[in-house]
Design a protein around this nucleic acid. Structure first.
Lengths: 219, 219
DNA sequence: TAGATTGTTAATCGATTAACAATC
DNA sequence: TAGATTGTTAATCGATTAACAATC
C-alpha cells in the first residue's frame, strides 16, 4: 500500500517511532563505510530485530525498496530525517538546572535531532544569571511570559519531584503544548497537553527485576 | 487466583513493572497525608489509569484488597518495595563520567530504589583520580578486574556512542550480567546478557512527532 | 532462470479494557 | 440491606511474527 500525505494523519505506532532513530544511526555507519544499499535481513541481524518489522517501519517513512537489492542507504537516511522532522528544529525551555538539567543542556547532539534548548530556568538565586553549558540561567518567574513571547511550545522538566507540578503549571500558562518530564511523578495537566514521562526509576525497576531473576536462576 | 512463589517465575509484564514505581510514589504521598486505605478507582483518577489495570498490577505483588474498602496503604507500599527488591541493594559500576554520567552519580535517590553506584570509570586522564559527586573516578582498564573481584553484576554505560561497544565488552569480560545503556547504539553482547537501552533520541522522536502533529492540527 | 528480497495480508501474541459474580 | 469495590474471566485492541505472491 502506498503511503500518502493524508494517511499520515493516522497515528504512527510508538514502537515504530522509537526504532527509527536506531535505524538512522545504523544507516549512518553504513554510509560512512560507503555501503550503497542494505536489506532488512542485514539490518535485522545487526539490530536484533525481525526483518518484517523493519520493512513495515521503513514503509512508514514513504520510502520503498527494490526486491533482491534492498533500500538505498542515503535515501533511507534522508527519509527518516525528514519523517522525524530533524530538519526544522523545535525550540525548548528547560526548568531545573541540577545535575540532570545541566547534562541535557550540554547535550550538543540534540541540535542534530530536531531539538534546541534555548533557555534554562531555576529558582535558585545562586544559579540565576550564571552560564551553564554556555546557556544563561534565568529566573523561573520569567519563563511563562518568555515562552509566550518567543512562541516556544516545548518544555523540559528536570526539577526534583516536589517542584515539577508547579513548573508544569507555569509551562501551561506560558502556552507550552508538550512537556518532556524527567521528574518521577504524574503531572496533572489539561487534556490537550502532551506529556512524555522519562522516569528512570521505572526503567530501573524493569532492569533490576530482570537482573535479580537472572541471578537467582544462575545459582 | 493466588500468587505463589512458584508463579513468580513467569515473567511479569514490563508495563506492569514500569507502573509499580508510579504507584509507590503516589502511595507515599497518601501515607504522608495519613490516608489508611485507597481504592483502585481513586488511584486511577489521579494517575490517569484504568482501575482494572491497577488492580491487576497490584495483584502481582501478592497483596489483596477488600471489597468496599480497597487496599491498606502501608501494606501496599511494603509489598511494592519488597516485590521490586528495593531492600537488597544492587551494586553497579558506571563508565563514562561526562555530564550525564556525573548526573547519575549524583542521583542520591537511587539508593532508595535498590541501586548503589559504587565506582565510576573513564579513560580521560584529566578525570581519573578526581572525585565526582563524592565518588572516585578510576581508569577504565581496571574495571573488568574490579567487577569480578567485587562481584558487581550491573554496569551503566554513559559514554559517547563510539566507545559504548568497547565498554560493554569490558563489562562482559568482568562478569557483568546486566547493562543499563544510555548510549544511542545497539550493543552486541552474548545472548545471556541483559541490556536495557535508555535512548533519549528515541524518546525525543516520539515526543517531537506528537508535538508537530498537534501544532499542525492547531493551525 | 533461480533465488533473494520486497510488500502485504493473515495468524499469533500479549496487554488493555469490559463484564460480572463475589463480598464486605 | 444496598452499593461500592474486589477478583477474575471474556472481549477487544494493537503490535509482532508468519506466510506468500510479486518482482528484480
Amino acid at each position: 500500500m502506498m503511503i500518502t500525505d493524508s494517511d499520515q494523519a493516522r497515528p504512527i505506532p510508538e514502537p515504530t517511532l522509537r526504532r527509527l532513530p536506531t535505524y538512522h544511526h545504523f544507516l549512518k555507519t553504513l554510509e560512512a563505510e560507503g555501503r550503497e544499499a542494505v536489506s532488512c535481513s542485514t539490518m535485522g541481524r545487526e539490530l536484533n530485530l525481525d526483518p518484517t518489522q523493519i520493512r513495515k517501519d521503513l514503509a512508514m517513512t514513504g520510502i520503498t525498496g527494490r526486491p533482491k537489492i534492498g533500500y538505498v542507504v542515503t535515501d533511507l537516511i534522508g527519509a527518516i530525517e525528514s519523517f522525524l522532522g530533524w530538519n526544522d528544529i523545535q525550540q525548548a525551555f528547560l526548568a531545573g538546572v541540577g545535575n540532570l538539567g545541566a547534562a541535557l543542556l550540554g547535550y550538543q547532539q540534540f541540535n542534530r535531532y530536531g531539538l534546541d534548548i534555548v533557555a534554562a530556568f531555576d529558582t535558585d538565586e545562586a544559579k540565576i544569571g550564571r552560564q551553564v553549558q554556555g546557556k544563561e540561567v534565568m529566573p523561573l518567574s520569567k519563563m511563562a511570559d518568555l515562552a509566550r513571547r518567543m512562541h516556544v511550545h516545548l518544555g523540559i522538566i528536570t526539577t526534583p519531584a516536589e517542584h515539577a507540578q508547579y513548573v508544569a503549571d507555569q509551562m501551561v500558562a506560558g502556552g507550552i503544548e508538550a512537556i518532556w518530564n524527567f521528574a518521577p511523578i504524574v503531572l496533572s495537566t489539561p487534556e490537550h497537553i502532551i506529556v512524555q514521562d522519562e522516569d528512570l526509576f521505572s526503567s530501573l525497576a524493569v532492569l533490576s527485576r530482570r537482573l535479580r531473576t537472572r541471578l537467582q536462576a544462575m545459582q
